[in-house]
Simulated assay, not measured.
Amino acid sequence: MTDPASATPLAQLLAALVRDGGAARWHGAIPPDWQQGRTAFGGLSAALALHAARQLEPELPPLRSAQVAFVGPLAGAVTVSATLLRRGRNAAFVAAEVSGEAGLGVRCTFVFMRALPDALSHARGAAPAAAPPAPSDRVLRGGHPQVAFTRHFEFVDPPGQDDPAAWLRWARLAERGGLHPEVELLALGDCLPPAALRLLGVGAPVSSMTWQLNLLAPAPATRDGWWLLRSATDHARDGASSQQMAIWDADGRAIAEQIQSVAIFG
């Protein structure tokens, strides 16, 4: 496990990306402290792709949706590329990829859309009853000692969790300065272990396959960096799990809904 003092903040990693001339292509490196086993942490890979997408076009509207496919492992030197698929009056579609020595690692499609006049206002459900972390609460820095990327996150577990197929955790990036709010949220959104591991009761090799995040409000923000994350497995069989995920801010406002498919090797 990498010591926090020698870890690379996400903003520093993004700032070190070098653009390839005038092309929509950037070169950089993923340090060991952002690894998850033999590949980069999925939230980091998606954040790299979103960062590149936002450099591609001036004055993009807010991010509304991210579709992420984790195609192969990423480690060490990487290339990030972005392509404008379409920009209309209200929305823009941007594709972005992250590749490494082993080939394509992550392929993303981002949808950016400006707010439109309300034709409908509807919300279902409320945030779980979990008070934001207090100064006296025990904050855990990192998770499993063999999962390096967790050293970049801080967690607080709310009491009274009785669903054996779900995680509910307060989480925040330990180093948040200098980040676009959408990039910060995307980096954080995938930081919980797959919920199916709670059902197993033991550790097992896992790998995210696909992930979709829908942002419910522009310019996501919260207090003290804390976001409430929930991940719940709906179905797990034949080595594959489908889980629903959600994010709320510290005031209980719904920020994102997500769905993810996870492979379980064990």
Rank of each mutant, 00 (worst) to 15 (best):
D3A: 15
P4V: 09
P9I: 11
Q12T: 15
V18I: 15
D20K: 10
A24K: 01
W26Q: 04
H27R: 15
D33F: 05
R38K: 13
G43N: 01
A46M: 07
A46H: 00
A46D: 05
L48I: 10
L48W: 04
A49W: 01
A53E: 02
L56P: 00
E57K: 00
E59D: 15
E59I: 02
E59M: 09
P61D: 04
R64K: 11
Q67A: 13
F70D: 01
G72M: 04
G72Y: 01
L74A: 03
A82D: 04
T83N: 11
L84I: 04
R86A: 14
G88H: 02
R89T: 14
F93W: 10
A95I: 07
E101P: 07
V106E: 03
T109W: 03
V111Q: 07
A126P: 04
A127G: 08
A129I: 10
P132T: 06
P133L: 06
A134P: 06
A134V: 08
S136C: 05
S136M: 08
H144D: 15
H144V: 10
V147R: 01
R151M: 08
F153D: 01
F155Y: 15
A171C: 14
H180Y: 07
L185D: 04
L185T: 03
L186S: 02
A187D: 03
C191Q: 12
L192V: 13
R198L: 13
L199Q: 15
G201L: 12
G203Y: 13
M209P: 01
T210S: 14
T210W: 05
G225C: 10
W227F: 12
A236V: 13
R237I: 11
G239H: 08
S242I: 13
S242N: 12
A246E: 08
D249S: 09
A263P: 07
I264Q: 13
F265D: 11
